[in-house]
Design a protein around this nucleic acid. Structure first.
Lengths: 188, 188
DNA sequence: GTCTATAGACCGATAGAC
DNA sequence: GTCTATCGGTCTATAGAC
């Protein structure tokens, strides 16, 4: 059984979220006001409030939209027959997603209030559970918790690190794959 | 030649920063007001403004204080004679610091405005340069930029990941060391 | 160095016309 | 679904007394 994000969004709502994500990435969640979102959309605050009842709803929906990008990657990985192929598929997908997103991933992971909220979010917990299962199987030892945390942090954190600011996307992707494979003990 | 943080701080200023760091960790930088800092210190906002002219100054000083904790670690590593020992020493120090800081590290890395600021900060750039030199020497290829970025992100990101929220400090430390060594191709 | 008091801007959110 | 207008509250920052 697969959970999906908790709400279906209209086209207008999707545009609002896209704008919000870009602003979150530039100014942080707490540093982004509804006025800024409205300005970027070319409407007034009241129009934004017609789409979402509160700012929290926007933040939540934005976080879920980011998270939802992991779903097809997880599903593609789960469809593989061997554990090794599952992990290769997952790694490749995560690297692609991180490189493509580069700027937008960061802000979500950094906001303490948001992290706290997501820890109690059913959809988030489901995605993380499946991610972890792909990476370490049924192992529930502390060690098996640290390894996926490190891999996720390494990939999503490395793409925004100043060291790689002017590294070409393709080069970055290839290198992340190579180092990620080594980290997971995969061939290649 | 070694750069140091740009200001010498009074005792009162240090206490202000300690309080600020704790609040940043709990509520994010943008979510922490001067009122909250003043309340926690048991004084009024005006008294805080006597210590620092603006909120930005507090944020900057807090960031520098965090960063400065890396200095003795870097120096200890640089003092080692072989490259392998340098990297072992650096890894151990970074892991210790990350685990000890756990709660406070997160907020600094998550705020885009802060990251952006630090990218243009002389002290920050010097610390990063020395970190990178320890990890990859004089190699300036793209690959040599991605590897340290991944290691730094992996360690500092892993300690704040929900997966390891209830992993014991000692276990976390040991596991980060083990995986970090593998990532760097170090023995042990 | 700490206080009270306040300025002035911006915040999230709402009411009600069109 | 977008607007104008506005509410109450909080924000950073300052003035000036003690």
């Amino acid at each position: 059984m697969t959970l999906t994000p908790s709400t279906d969004l209209s086209v207008a709502q999707r545009r609002t979220i896209a704008v919000a994500l870009e602003l979150f990435a530039r100014h942080g969640v707490g540093g982004t006001s509804l006025q800024m979102i409205a300005d970027e959309l070319g409407v007034t605050k009241a129009a934004v409030y017609h789409q979402f009842k509160t700012k929290d709803e926007i933040v939540l929906a934005a976080g879920e939209a980011e998270l939802a990008q992991l779903l097809p990657i997880i599903e593609a990985a789960e469809a593989q027959r061997s554990v090794r192929k599952q992990r290769q598929e997952l790694l490749a997908g995560m690297v692609d997603l991180a490189v493509d997103s580069r700027r937008t991933v960061r802000s979500m992971l950094g906001d303490p209030a948001l992290i706290d909220f997501f820890n109690h979010n059913e959809f988030f917990r489901d995605v993380m559970r499946r991610l972890r299962h792909l990476l370490v199987g049924d192992d529930h030892t502390p060690e098996a918790r640290v390894r996926p945390a490190m891999l996720i942090a390494a990939i999503s954190g490395a793409v925004i690190h100043p060291f790689v600011a002017d590294v070409d996307d393709d080069v970055l992707r290839e290198e992340l794959l190579r180092l990620g494979r080594r980290f997971l003990g995969l061939p290649g």
